[in-house]
Write a protein that binds this DNA or RNA. Sequence first.
DNA 1: TTAATGTGCAACCTTGAAGTTGCTACTGTA
DNA 2: TACAGTAGCAACTTCAAGGTTGCACATTAA
Lengths: 97, 97
Amino acid sequence: MSAPDPLGQVFSALADPSRRHVMDYLAARGTATATELTGELPITRQAVAKHLATLAGAGLVSSERQGRETRYQLTLVGREWDDRLGALRTHLERRRG
Amino acid sequence: MSAPDPLGQVFSALADPSRRHVMDYLAARGTATATELTGELPITRQAVAKHLATLAGAGLVSSERQGRETRYQLTLVGREWDDRLGALRTHLERRRG
DNA sequence: TTAATGTGCAACCTTGAAGTTGCTACTGTA
DNA sequence: TACAGTAGCAACTTCAAGGTTGCACATTAA
């Protein structure tokens, strides 16, 4: 019965480095499967699947089943956030050191 | 030995509704003490103090001891983030809700 | 000096996040 | 059909976040 809090969901989703890596990967490649992303991260496929579910819950990625694989991609909102991530990174580094 | 990850710290800090409320309150009033903020939230002063420590760790607020009280205020980075919070809220609601 | 107010620290509890392993089911191909 | 590859579900473990209580320390005012 927790309140929806969509803003909190987005911030929580982006707080995790693995999920930000997934965001960057999807922004660069367009789409990816959970198995494909597993090669990019030092965690299991099931852990990647959970991260993808979290990102989907925050409205940052969407999925589409194609044959025996499920391909994920950034949503409109997700693309906007990814565009800001790079700028935010350099911005924070400039301000904090 | 966890990597610094300043971006993750900021996102984590802003993911909590109580901390966002603290941010908004500080933006509106300028400064506040932990005891004063306790009246604004349904949690204890010690919990508020932990939230303030988290915000300080993310570089969003700073503290200054004045006599027997410690007054907190937004940093430059914190002010910039608070400016964006309102816009982000309406932005997300427009896109998702 | 004593009482009241405001902080800070430490121990503890509960819950959810992140990750793992194990197993089952579906899909494409040899 | 048999098999390899992809995905999904469930139980379990570990650990940190958020919160609490209790107490000690510092500062101001009576």
